[in-house]
């Protein structure tokens, strides 16, 4: 069941262009699937009228906590990133459908680019709780984009690419040597659209099952306004309600 809940900011970590916000609710949270998102209300920012959809980076149901990684891209996210500990932040959650949970013996690759690495943290955590050790391939423009790397590494082998070569292999995620290794059964991708399309193409060329998490401009986040549509083989569908995670076979990519 979805809820509208006030959270208190209990911890904030600054990573330059991005911040990590750990937020605690007074009441119990509903169960949350990896890949689902929240709609955050941005208070006190006159030019920000609509909520901002942000993927869920981590969940701690015992503590009623949600953690978000927020990249500053515009007024709304800049305002959110300026929040201080003890500030109250209102969110609608959980929204959309998450990633498909793989079979126990599947070999799983999670590919993240830029701030798109955010939801893969909670996904990797849930997978490891289920006894599945994912391989992760995380890419960024530079070293500073790859935040909380040690956190990812606790859940499985983690490879890195940076465009400037400041960490891991130099180049894009699609150029990484991990693709030369044994195949994967399932590939999950979250990142900028051109990067996701490139990975989807690579996966298709190997005949590998692939899911991507899309991020379109949204208003309601509930499937009511029909603004965030993606053109699929079934026609226009709402990314917020039918997605944000889609099997690439459904997309016209």
């Amino acid at each position: 069941m979805k809820q509208i809940t006030d959270f208190r900011l209990v911890e904030k970590q600054d990573f330059g262009r991005s911040v990590m916000l750990r937020l605690r609710a007074k009441h119990a949270l509903p169960s949350i699937n990896p890949g689902q998102f929240v709609q955050v209300r941005v208070d006190g920012s006159p030019s920000t009228y609509l909520r901002r959809p942000i993927s869920i980076h981590d969940v701690d149901l015992q503590q009623n906590e949600i953690t978000l990684l927020v990249q500053q891209v515009g007024e709304g996210t800049r305002h959110l990133a300026a929040a201080e500990v003890d500030d109250v932040i209102n969110m609608v959650l959980p929204l959309g459908n998450g990633f498909t949970i793989p079979e126990k013996n599947d070999k799983v690759l999670l590919v993240g680019g830029g701030i798109g690495i955010a939801p893969l943290f909670y996904f990797a955590k849930v997978l490891s709780e289920k006894g599945i050790k994912p391989t992760m391939l995380l890419g960024g423009k530079m070293k500073s984009d790859l935040i909380r790397l040690a956190g990812y590494q606790q859940f499985g082998q983690t490879f890195v690419t940076t465009e400037d070569g400041s960490l891991g292999e130099k180049g894009f995620v699609t150029m990484h040597s991990v693709w030369q290794r044994d195949g994967f059964d399932r590939i999950y991708v979250c990142g900028p659209k051109p990067m996701m399309k490139a990975v989807a193409k690579l996966a298709a060329s190997k005949g590998t099952w692939c899911e991507v998490s899309l991020e379109n401009l949204m208003a309601c986040g509930l499937g009511a306004c029909l603004c965030c549509v993606e053109d699929t083989v079934e026609g226009h569908v709402c990314v917020c309600k039918e997605g944000p995670v889609f099997n690439t076979r459904r997309l016209k990519w």
Partner: peptide, 12 residues
């Protein structure tokens, strides 16, 4: 086609 929405001051 997408995009179908643009946020504006106090509206959309």
């Amino acid at each position: 086609p997408y995009p179908r929405m643009a946020e504006t001051p106090s509206g959309m």
